[in-house]
């Protein structure tokens, strides 16, 4: 039966890699140090496998066939897919058996995700893993939620997906120690007129709710106010899923800063599992 060693949430943005110099060096170092601290904490839990909750940014999926949820069931994952991303190419090991277990069990539990046996991960998965310094040989199972093209699954359904994952992981005998990294958000706009206008008030309220103990209020706030915090904020669906997997465990932020010149409210935190 697998133990969850840590559940982390962290923002991602390609700007960190593509335009690092748009912010002062001291701030950049502070942010990169916060990701490294998350990575150190993560590795201290000695996980044997990692569930990456992220989203595809219209690279693997297009509007001809767009899954609401997609479970990765591949032996390995190349990254990045973006020809324009300033990142060195790498290959992540996949935990195919774990992915297949989560998929089959999901369908048995009346969740109906799509699955993929070949995905090239984009910056959404790569950036936080890279900045956190997480070993690429640690086998991963990517679980992608549509946050980039309406219509999208609800915040509540994303939370329920996480609840399912938390239970299914606990019942899995194939690995002993599992970490979860949920990436995306918080407030940001991608290629909209509000790009670069981070809604810090949303982020602060959202983080405070995450740190409180009213899960319904957190889901309600995410649902009712995400429209004030940018299309990139739709990625807090992954935070909802992390909260579901945490099953009531306490959350605390380890870093937050509204970084307008990187267009993103950068938040990092973990659940006390």
């Amino acid at each position: 039966m697998a133990e969850i060693t840590g559940i982390y949430t962290a923002s991602h943005t390609p700007v960190m890699l593509n335009f690092p110099d748009r912010i002062p060096a001291a701030l950049r170092e502070e942010i990169f140090a916060a990701y490294r601290a998350m990575g150190d904490d993560f590795m201290a839990g000695k996980p044997d496998a990692l569930i990456v909750l992220s989203n595809d940014h219209l690279h693997n999926f297009f509007l001809d066939n767009f899954p609401a949820f997609c479970f990765g069931c591949a032996e390995s994952y190349e990254s990045p897919i973006e020809h324009w991303l300033h990142a060195k190419r790498r290959t992540f090991a996949g935990d195919q058996a774990f992915g297949a277990y989560l998929l089959q069990n999901a369908l048995q539990s009346d969740f109906d995700p799509a699955f993929s046996m070949e995905m090239v991960l984009d910056h959404g998965s790569l950036t936080p893993l890279e900045l956190a310094g997480i070993d690429p040989d640690l086998p991963i199972v990517p679980i992608l939620i549509n946050c980039v093209q309406p219509p999208m699954p609800t915040m509540r359904r994303s939370y329920d997906l996480g609840r399912y994952l938390g239970k299914a992981i606990a019942d899995y005998a194939g690995v002993e120690r599992v970490a979860i990294l949920a990436t995306g958000g918080i407030s940001h706009d991608i290629a909209t007129p509000r790009m670069g206008m981070v809604n810090e008030e949303f982020d602060q309220t959202f983080l405070s709710l995450m740190e409180g103990d009213d899960i319904d209020a957190t889901i309600r706030y995410a649902t009712d106010f995400v429209h004030t915090a940018g299309n990139g904020c739709e990625e807090i669906r992954m935070w909802m899923a992390a909260m579901g997997a945490a099953n009531g465990a306490k959350y605390h932020r380890t870093y937050y800063r509204a970084v307008n010149d990187w267009y993103t409210g950068i938040g990092i935190g973990r659940f006390e599992v």
């Binding site: 219209l58 290629a191 509000r194």
Partner: peptide, 29 residues
């Protein structure tokens, strides 16, 4: 889709400040 638009702006090398200003001009449109 804004993500496709964003990737396109970077991919065809529209200067960052030009694409940003074009988008910002729509704020009250």
């Amino acid at each position: 889709n804004p993500y496709l638009l964003r990737a396109h702006c970077i991919g065809v090398k529209i200067p960052e400040d030009v694409s940003l200003a074009a988008l910002r001009s729509l704020l009250n449109h």
